[in-house]
C-alpha cells in the first residue's frame, strides 16, 4: 500500500506548472473567449502531453493515467483553453483500433479527434479529423456528420450537436467514457484549487471594518469548507487513475466517485469563492467567472453528480464490496 505519486510524476507536474505559469496567464484564457487558441495544443504537443498515453509505435510515451492525472489537474489550475479530455480519452481507443497514423497526428497536435458526450455535444467537431461517439454501448465513428454549432456559457468551449452515420469499431465504450470522466475530474480539482487561491488571496488584501476580510471567521470558514472538499476530492481522483491503469474490477465505481467529489468540490468552491469576493467576483472583468464557468460545464459533462452517484448506487445496492 503506497498512495503517493513517484518522484518522476511530481517532476512532470512541476515542469508543466512552471511552463503554464509563463505561457498561460489568465489573459490568454480571456483571449480564447474571442479567438480559439490553436497554439496551445501545439505547445502541449511539444511537451509530449498530447501523446503521453499513446503507444510508442504511435510516437507516444506509453504512459498511463497516473502519469497524466496531475498534468490534467495543472491544466485545470490555469483553466487552459484546450480540449485535453477528448485527446486523453480517445488516444488509447485509437491505439486499440489500430488507427496509429491518426493517433500519431493527434499526438503532434496536427489533428484533433472529437468525442461526443453521450446525450450531449462534441467540442470543436468542425475542426476534427474524426468524431468518435458511443451509441447503444458501442464505440464508433460518426461519418458524414452534420454539425449544429451551439453556444456555451464558457466562451472557450465550442460545442456542436452532431449526428451522422454510425460506424462501430471494436473498442471498450465504458473505458473510453471513464477516461473522459477522469480527465474532467482532474481538471475540476485544478480549477477548484485556483478558485480557492484567488479567494484566499483576495480575502487577505481586501479590507473592511478596518481589517482584512480573511480575518473574519464567517469568511474563513467558507474557505476552509472549500479546502476540505478539494482535499478529499483529490485522493478519489488519484485512486481512480490507479484503478484505470491496473484495470481494477471496480474502476468504473472509482471513476464515478472521482467525478462526483471533484464536481461537487468545484461547484462548491466556485460558490464560496464568489461569495468571498463579493461584487467584484460578479464582474466579467475579474477572472473568477472563467474558472467558475469551466467548473459548471465540466461538472455536468461526462456524467454529472446524479449520473455517477447512481452508477455507484447500482454497485453498492447489488452487494458490491470494495475493501
Amino acid at each position: 500500500m503506497r498512495f503517493s505519486f513517484t518522484e518522476e510524476q511530481r517532476q512532470m507536474r512541476d515542469a508543466l506548472r512552471s511552463s503554464l505559469t509563463e505561457s498561460c496567464p489568465s489573459g490568454r484564457v480571456r483571449a480564447a473567449w474571442k479567438t480559439p487558441d490553436a497554439a496551445l495544443r501545439i505547445e502541449l504537443a511539444e511537451q509530449g502531453i498530447l501523446a503521453i498515453n499513446l503507444p510508442e509505435d504511435a510516437g507516444g510515451l506509453g504512459l498511463g493515467a497516473q502519469d497524466w492525472v496531475l498534468l490534467a489537474e495543472e491544466l485545470g489550475l490555469v483553466a487552459a483553453p484546450v480540449n485535453l479530455i477528448e485527446t486523453l480519452a480517445t488516444n488509447p481507443t485509437l491505439a486499440a483500433i489500430g488507427a496509429l497514423d491518426l493517433a500519431s497526428q493527434v499526438g503532434t497536435g496536427a489533428e484533433f479527434v472529437a468525442l461526443e458526450e453521450p446525450g450531449g455535444f462534441a467540442l470543436d467537431a468542425d475542426k476534427a479529423a474524426g468524431i468518435l461517439a458511443v451509441r447503444d454501448g458501442r464505440v464508433g465513428w460518426l461519418r458524414d456528420a452534420t454539425l449544429i454549432a451551439e453556444t456555451s456559457v464558457d466562451g472557450t468551449r465550442r460545442p456542436f450537436k452532431v449526428d451522422g452515420r454510425f460506424e462501430a469499431v471494436d473498442a471498450d465504450a465504458t473505458d473510453l467514457l471513464d477516461r473522459a470522466a477522469l480527465v474532467a475530474a482532474a481538471e475540476l480539482v485544478g480549477l477548484s484549487r485556483r478558485m480557492l487561491d484567488l479567494a484566499v488571496e483576495y480575502s487577505k488584501s481586501r479590507r473592511q471594518f478596518g481589517k482584512p476580510i480573511g480575518s473574519f471567521q464567517a469568511v474563513q470558514h467558507h474557505l476552509v469548507d472549500a479546502l476540505q472538499r478539494i482535499a478529499f476530492a483529490a485522493p478519489a481522483v488519484y485512486r481512480a487513475a490507479w484503478s484505470v491503469d491496473t484495470n481494477h474490477p471496480n474502476r468504473s465505481v472509482h471513476v464515478s466517485m472521482a467525478k462526483v467529489y471533484a464536481s461537487e468540490a468545484a461547484l462548491f468552491t466556485g460558490r464560496k469563492a464568489l461569495q468571498v469576493h463579493g461584487a467584484i467576483g460578479y464582474t466579467f472583468e475579474y477572472d473568477l467567472h472563467m474558472w467558475m464557468k469551466r467548473a459548471w460545464t465540466l461538472s455536468s459533462a461526462w456524467g454529472d453528480v446524479r449520473h455517477h452517484t447512481d452508477r455507484v448506487g447500482q454497485f453498492v445496492m447489488s452487494g458490491g464490496q470494495d475493501a
Binding site: 481589517k211 482584512p212 471567521q217 474563513q220 474557505l223 469548507d225
Partner: peptide, 15 residues
Amino acid sequence: EVQRNIVAGRVLDLP
C-alpha cells in the same frame, strides 16, 4: 469551529 479556525490559520495562512 475550532478546527476550522486552525485550518484557516495554519493551512490557508489567513490573518
